[in-house]
Design a protein around this nucleic acid. Structure first.
Lengths: 202, 202, 202, 202
DNA sequence: AATGAATGAGCATTCATTCAT
DNA sequence: TATGAATGAATGCTCATTCAT
């Protein structure tokens, strides 16, 4: 009992320390020494829980992403309109982005020297990250909607992430409600129109 | 004169070599030795033209981005409708993304250990990259459009980049015409509607 | 009683595991973890029976060498001619060499970082290994034989070991009877001749 | 000119430092830092001249062994009797052994973790080391001598090395003339006898 | 301006040993 | 006695940068 708990505790401590250090420095510049010190364990202990720096990094991504995916999936299952979808997405994914921008950006970056196994794990994460959005859109968009859910999801997610990223870049406060409103204003008409409709404003 | 030309030639040779090596390996894994060899100069010569590896990297980004910004600015100046804007953007920025994905991703990634000066130069690039889009939208959107051009631009650019990135990730062919069409279908209604209009599909 | 037996059993298990691992990897590359696992005990238990990796290694050598020395001593005591000596030696020591080449080579190799105490123990082993040969030759050679038994023994042992080693190196099968015959052919005349005899072939 | 010389000088300096350090500590315990310091160069410089610690080690063996092989080959070519052969061998190989005992022992030891390439290079050295002896014996022994030169050479070399090693082990002075005499006394009769001869002293 | 040999700080990983249980 | 989780010192190798020529 105690052993299992203490083992899980230590693993969690290490992941938390790793998150801070990776976030602050990026993968390459992060130092295992610093992670160990921050986690309050000896350097060698890191290797009892993770095979390598790469494994630690990807395990961290997995831990955080799967947790987020589960949350988002649950929230989106309760949604029954495209509008609700956009609002929920903006809130949940936007929050993730604000808190873990580096994490999402790490995913879309090919890390140096990563072995095939790790590239595969990252690839799975990237795909998994889109799953809830794709699923929700598949359910909510009209069956004859002319854009594939994969692409529609990419556009919504891209618009959301990039907007939040831009606000951060420009030092402006990120108010997710405002972002949600803008997202609705720009995307909802296109997502809501019937396939045959003339969408051009002319 | 001759000296200036030869100097410029060598600088260009180095930038071209650097582009290939950085693209193939990313910043950290790229080696100055390889760049020098590919450029046909001695290792020490690199330091006659650039202060450091970081300087070479950022100079390369600047060189390529400003060139692209000039092109896009010119193309967008000829555009006189939101629809034309979306089509032109998809073509020009989409092309850049397909060819220089690593370049754009480098911009949005916090490079490890980069000094403040370099972070600033990269920040300028990121802002400059959005300029033409913002400018065009400022001109083309109705004056009372409720979304700030900065955010609108972010959404269009994000939707475009993320869609192309997703296609690449899934190993699907990137046909920019199709991407442009999907972009139009989803974004144009929202970008074209009058401010007071009821956009919700209900 | 029971305790003693069980203790002896465990000690023997560890030595057997250690033999396999040391033989396969050599001293430095052998890992205590692997030895413990193969012996079916916990890593810490090794240190209840042996002070250190070095102690385990040298204890193993001692265990095996003294056992071999006892065997050879007994066999050589029954021998009553130089020819019988050569034959018996080729058979017994040759066998040891074929089966435990690494063991003999370990003895003649200065192990890295071994402390003085351990070097001494190894030195004793090396000397002990020659004892039976020296004793037998002292008994069998004519009292006025001009070569000291120590040197004569060294020559016989060296010729034997090196020949077997060479055969192994060249991937040739080691037939100890053949080796014994060659050894006899080359060494016996010299070992058998009376001191004053003219041994040169001229 | 100067560059080539200075390059050769530095390579030689490194080899000399490596010899001292490897001799004193063995391969595994030897530290590249110490070699660099002793050679008076920076650690990185070692890697300009040798690919790795293993490469440095094997290159050193090669350098020393080939030099010795050339010397021995030349000396043995002038020899025209088995007796002369034994004397010359004792002098030249004995000298090598006294000075570079660790070197010869390194050869007959399977170094830990050595890659196939390096094992091959060491194997070639071991074979090359026997070449001059085999060649000389092939020339000097009667054509119908019943022992293959390879085995005869192994016996002579083994007897010689082991004798010298034993003297060193026992702390006795190594007088090569005495060793040569003992070697002659014991080996010459066997090496000189005609094939049909009865060699047993009985 | 150009070279390229030399530098040396920096770092992930291993593994014998310990000690609380 | 026995365990095995935790330790942390130890080390080969890389590569951006310098500088004598």
């Amino acid at each position: 009992m105690k052993n299992v708990d203490s083992t899980q505790d230590k693993r969690r401590d290490i992941l938390e320390a790793a998150e801070k250090v990776f976030r602050a420095n990026g993968f390459t510049a992060a130092k295992m020494d610093e992670i160990a010190e921050l986690a309050g364990v000896a350097k060698g202990t890191l290797y009892l829980y993770f095979d390598s720096k790469q494994d630690l990094f990807v395990s961290l991504l997995e831990d955080r992403i799967w947790e987020y995916v589960a949350t988002l999936t649950k929230k989106l299952e309760e949604v029954c309109s495209v509008q609700g979808f956009v609002q929920t997405l903006a809130k949940v994914r936007g929050q993730l982005f604000v808190k873990n921008r580096w994490l999402l950006e790490s995913l879309s970056h090919s890390l140096p020297d990563f072995s095939k196994e790790f590239r595969m794990r990252i690839w799975n994460l990237r795909k998994g990250l889109e799953e809830p959005t794709i699923e929700a859109l598949t359910r909510l968009l009209p069956p004859d909607y002319p854009i594939a859910p994969l692409q529609a999801a990419a556009m919504v997610n891209g618009a959301l992430d990039y907007t939040v990223g831009t606000l951060i870049l420009h030092g402006q406060p990120v108010v997710l409600e405002d972002v949600a409103r803008a997202l609705e204003y720009i995307l909802l008409p296109g997502l809501s129109q019937a396939p045959g409709e003339d969408y051009s404003g002319q």
